[in-house]
Amino acid sequence: MTTASQLRRGGRAFEPFKTVIEAVLIAIVIRSLLFQPFNIPSGSMEPTLRVGDYLFVSKYSYGYSRYSLPFSLPFFSGRIAAVQPQRGDVVVFRHGSVDFIKRVIGLPGDRIQVIDGAVYLNGRQIERKRIADFVGRNPCRPSAPGSPPVEVPQWRETLPNGVSYDTLKCSALPAFPDSTSVYTVPPGHFFMMGDNRENSEDSRFPDVGYVPFDDLIGRAQVIFFSVTPAQWAWEVWNWPSAIRWTRLFSIVR
């Protein structure tokens, strides 16, 4: 016959498993509904985001799609509580099986064109001002650790809604023409570009193209951790020299 004391002992033995299950469920809810961490693996969004940045993306900013769920489980289609992104938002979206991060330049119905390196929105050039060169790790092509810093022309763009951000202009490569045809953004889609204009696979290229609203995961909000590209975040012993302290807790704009 099972006594009350035996039941209590059995309940206490189960407590660690209960705690773990509760923690996992809370983490799933937070990751699915509130914030999800991402890291930056490439230089397509430099100088805004650097290789080695770790950031939080808000899942609620544009509502929820299947890509809000762990493993992109197809429990529903479309978006729930949908909110359209604004020009200038830095957005994470699903492309095939990979998550991309780019900036929203064109909304549905917009016409986008690049002429001599300048971006035109609905027939008018986006305001563009030359600022001091970017100095640091080569943002145009992969460079070996310890390579000397480079200087790259840098411009500040300001969209019609007042959002400003810095862009880079590397030496033109054949894959990144300085002038393009006109892109007309279809309904329910967005035109995305990387801030590192000569090193970004984005909506200018057919492989990416116009990004469907349903493919958006969330908006980049804050950099919570950042290490130099030659280091790994888990290498705690290198943190004093590897952490880019000035980037911690900076807002993504």
Results as ranks from 00 to 15, higher is better:
P187K: 13
N199D: 13
F100R: 04
I112K: 01
P16E: 04
P212N: 04
L49V: 07
Q221K: 15
L159W: 09
L25Y: 09
V185K: 02
V252Y: 10
P74Y: 00
I223V: 15
S77N: 12
V208D: 04
G109N: 08
E198I: 05
I80L: 15
T3W: 04
K129P: 01
L73S: 05
P148L: 11
V185F: 01
G136V: 11
F17V: 15
F191D: 01
F191V: 02
R219S: 09
I126T: 08
T158V: 12
S179D: 05
R9F: 12
R204Y: 08
V236H: 11
G209F: 05
A172C: 06
P206N: 09
D195V: 09
R111E: 14
L49R: 03
D133T: 01
F35N: 00
F134P: 11
G188D: 08
L168A: 09
I21H: 09
G194T: 07
Q36R: 08
P153Y: 03
F76A: 08
D214C: 09
E22H: 09
I30D: 01
S61T: 10
I126K: 07
V24L: 15
E151Q: 13
N122Y: 08
S179R: 00
H189N: 06
R79C: 09
D89T: 04
E157I: 06
P139C: 07
P85V: 13
P187V: 11
Q221E: 15
P16D: 05
P70R: 02
I105K: 00
L25M: 14
L34Q: 00
G11E: 12
D89R: 02
L33N: 00
D202V: 03
P149I: 06
D99Y: 03
R219Q: 14
N161I: 03
N196M: 04
P85T: 12
W234L: 14
D215L: 11
D166A: 06
P148G: 10
V91N: 10
